[in-house]
């Protein structure tokens, strides 16, 4: 099977089984919305699927191969932590990120993307002086910069205002319509703008 396929995943954190023998797949053209109460293991699952942490047991494949460089090329992950350094400006943060991820984006393009996200005038100030929502926008601007097939977004709507949420939902829909795949989790429901959503529920286990 192509796409992102995880089979028989188990995760144990601090002697508590978060999930056991969990199977999951994400195909192109899908928007999967991961639901579950606090502590159910949503973030742990997302981090395991990214390849950031290792499952207790189970395998994950991307395009029928184990996760490796070809997977990182096709992935954008935006986690709880924005990955934005407070001492650097938004432009510097993005420029360095693009370089690390082998994305070629001109400075003009970076300014353009930040403007699209409503950060005009904020490009050249250290990111620690930005508000939480503005920092989140800087983090999310990666979705506009790198053309990756899979987006894994952990609580992407945190701290975003109504307009920002709508803009991100539109972006997610466009990505899915163009054959991309999105895996996201959030405690607020997605609106209709985000298009068809497949739900995946994680239960809290004792």
């Amino acid at each position: 099977m192509s796409g992102l396929v995880a089979s028989e995943l188990s995760c144990i954190k601090r002697d508590r089984v978060l999930f056991d023998r969990l199977s999951f797949s994400l195909q192109s053209g899908q928007l999967v919305y991961l639901r579950g109460p606090n502590g159910a293991g949503k973030t742990s699952l997302l981090r395991i699927l990214c390849g950031l942490s290792q499952p207790e047991s189970g395998t994950i494949t991307w395009q029928s191969q184990p996760l490796g460089e070809h997977w990182f090329k096709d992935l954008i992950y935006v986690g709880h932590k924005p990955g934005v350094n407070g001492a650097l400006t938004a432009i510097e943060n993005l420029a360095f990120w693009c370089r690390q991820h082998s994305v070629s984006a001109s400075l003009d393009h970076l300014y353009h993307v930040l403007a699209e996200l409503g950060l005009v005038g904020m490009e050249d100030v250290p990111c620690r002086t930005l508000s939480a929502g503005q920092q989140r926008r800087v983090a999310l601007s990666r979705l506009w910069l790198k053309s990756a097939k899979v987006w894994i977004l952990d609580e992407p709507f945190t701290a975003l205002d109504v307009k920002g949420v709508a803009q991100l939902e539109d972006k997610m829909k466009a990505h899915v319509d163009a054959g991309g795949a999105v895996l996201t989790t959030s405690h607020q429901a997605l609106s209709e703008r985000a298009g068809t959503v497949r739900f995946f529920d994680l239960e809290y286990r004792f």
Binding site: C50, G51, L52, E69, F72, K73, L75, Y77, G79, H80, K81, P82, G83, V84, N85, G86, A87, W97, Q100, H101, S102
Partner: peptide
């Protein structure tokens, strides 16, 4: 420390480098 705290390290680990 800083890279770990703000998540830059995660992004680096997922960069393929």
């Amino acid at each position: 420390r800083d890279d770990f705290a703000d998540g830059s390290l995660e992004q680096l680990q997922l960069s393929g480098l």
